[in-house]
């Protein structure tokens, strides 16, 4: 998208001796519409900073977390239910308090973010891979293949994603032997969420591909005898990526929420590897006894994450849509 220039600047002609020197790549990127609309939207800037901070927190959790909440040796049950910003029984300081097992809430949130983002990102990539390949195939071939793929997508879109993910999760649970379930749970979750979200990608890519297919560059490549798969991957795919990126960003927010919901329902990641949803599930048990911090801080983190990614997706959709300029 960076090759699009702002309406005011003329496209430099390289042959012409009087044309100004073409701007460098970085200059060109900074002049693009995307950057312009980014700097004009304070909400987007704040959202991206929050998202970036949360991602950094997740990536560097083992380095920056004050405690390791999953190392039983460092836990002290006497430290349980320490309120935020106070020193516990054993003399340690806990900025956001501890849960019933004496785990530092701040550290569990950092590790929980890791799991949430990992599952969300991989599930979105998985959905993207399936959706893009099926969408390209359907849009390029047309005919029966197109009809079958799109019918399946229609049916799947009319059911809520969470229900489909639950069913896939339940089936996978029955197929995997109990001894391996603990280790496989995260991967089952990724596949379940990914399979429940591919239809959006397929639909968009299919539509864009049908438009691109009519264009001359595709005909030219076809006449030159380029293999259809090469045409699709090297020529068509880059031209349909714009809308895909928008759906992927919003899809990431949806996948994170879906994972949190499944974990909250108790069918997500195992309790030994809690995600934000699991932490909220744990915290809910202490809502009535007054230990609000066990629930509140993971909940705020999840809201911030989902909201900031969602806002970025909304902005990206508007920024890439030429009709709204």
């Amino acid at each position: 998208m960076s090759e699009l220039n702002t309406p005011g600047t003329a496209v430099p002609l390289e042959q012409s001796p009087i044309a100004p020197k073409p701007p460098g790549r970085i200059r060109q990127a900074l002049d693009s519409d995307i950057v312009y609309s980014y700097t004009r939207s304070p909400v987007t800037i704040i959202a991206s900073i929050i998202a970036l901070l949360l991602i950094l927190m997740a990536v560097f959790a083992p380095l920056i977390a004050p405690y390791n909440p999953f190392n039983p040796a460092s836990l002290n049950l006497m430290d349980g239910f320490t309120p935020p910003n106070s020193t516990s029984f054993s003399g340690n300081y806990f900025a956001l308090g501890t849960d019933h097992q004496g785990r530092d809430v701040l550290s569990t949130i950092m590790y929980g973010l890791r799991v949430s983002l990992f599952v969300g990102a991989l599930a979105t990539l998985f959905a993207m891979a399936i959706g893009i390949s099926l969408g390209l195939a359907a849009g390029y071939n047309g005919g029966t293949l197109d009809a079958v793929i799109m019918r399946i997508a229609d049916i799947q879109l009319s059911f809520p994603a969470i229900l489909i993910a639950l069913l896939i999760f339940g089936i996978a649970r029955g197929l995997i032997p109990p001894s391996q379930q603990e280790g496989a749970a995260v991967w089952v979750l990724i596949v379940a969420i990914g399979l429940s979200n591919w239809a959006q990608f397929a639909r968009t890519v299919r539509g864009a591909t049908m438009v691109e297919r009519q264009k001359d560059y595709v005909s030219a490549a076809r006449i030159m005898g380029v293999h259809p798969i090469v045409i699709l991957v090297r020529h068509v795919l880059p031209n349909v990526m714009g809308p895909v990126l928008v759906i992927a960003t919003i899809g990431l927010a949806l996948a994170i929420i879906e994972e949190a919901t499944l974990s909250f329902l108790g069918v997500g990641v195992p309790p030994t590897q809690p995600s934000l949803g699991t932490l909220i599930r744990i915290g809910q048990q202490f809502l009535f006894s007054g230990e609000w911090w066990i629930l509140l801080f993971p909940a705020i983190t999840l809201i911030l994450l989902a909201l900031s990614v969602n806002l970025l997706g909304d902005w990206l959709r508007d920024a890439l849509n030429p009709k709204l300029r």
């Binding site: 929420i257 949190a260 919901t261 909220i280 809910q284 809502l287 909940a299 809201i303 909201l307």
Partner: peptide
Amino acid sequence: VGVSLPTFLIGIGLIYIFAV
């Protein structure tokens, strides 16, 4: 904001305000 919040958090929030 309501659309981007997960259902279960809205439920927990309501429980906290009106029940607790």
